[in-house]
Design a protein around this nucleic acid. Structure first.
Lengths: 111, 111
DNA sequence: CAAGTATATAACGATAGCAGTATATACTTG
DNA sequence: CAAGTATATACTGCTATCGTTATATACTTG
């Protein structure tokens, strides 16, 4: 470690990236919206920054983080040799997600 | 764990998937081509199978493994909210890979 | 410049996941 | 059915990484 794939294996890091996908945010904003401790957020952001997933802009005493595209492109490129396995039947993903949802009931939603 | 992303965080598992991308193979074939121990291969294949990345076909005393597409589609779907960050400048990936190549010199190629 | 706010880092204990060795199971063929 | 081949599983020790608590750094504003 830490490879690009090792980085996004962590659920909280994926949550942070998901937040930043819609817009850039400060550490405190991330901390509050994800209900994580501040040191944990800072630590994950450091990992994400060193791997190139995010970059920080300084605004007074805040650090505002935003997405950088390169590692995502690397993941996208990794998928290339596997793309011909689907491409046709697109709805197979939905069936897969339904199947695996019951296997990890922690993230179950109402329904 | 183990989420789809946790599964592909492991380099040996990505190597196995890479092999299977070109064609299905038996445990022994994987073992020899990747220079891994047999128990290690079997264990990784079990993880991959339970996560839906591969499935096994029984052929005499061999188990021949092949790719299943769904988890890859899940990764592809995860990338969706980040796609608009590149799409334009496609060559940024190459620059990124060149930058990070020296950080992990194990996989360096001739050049 | 003192108090407050925002973020980063250090140290620590707990846990998960890995490789390796040994062994079990299952199928095949003489 | 005995010996050989192919694969799976159990067990163990090691290491990496996570969250938490405590503390350090840095900037801001009265």
């Amino acid at each position: 470690m830490e490879s690009t794939f090792g980085i996004i294996a962590e659920p909280n890091r994926r949550a942070i990236l998901g937040l930043l996908a819609s817009s850039e945010r400060s550490v405190t904003e991330i901390e509050q919206q994800l209900r994580m401790s501040q040191p944990s957020v800072s630590k994950h952001l450091r990992v994400l920054r060193e791997a190139g997933f995010v970059e920080a802009r300084v605004d007074a005493q805040r650090r505002v983080y935003r997405i950088r595209p390169e590692p995502f492109m690397e993941v996208d490129a990794w998928l290339t040799p596997f793309r011909h396995f689907w491409s046709d039947r697109v709805d197979a993903l939905e069936r897969h997600l339904d199947r695996t949802a019951q296997a990890s009931p922690k993230k179950r939603k109402k329904r």
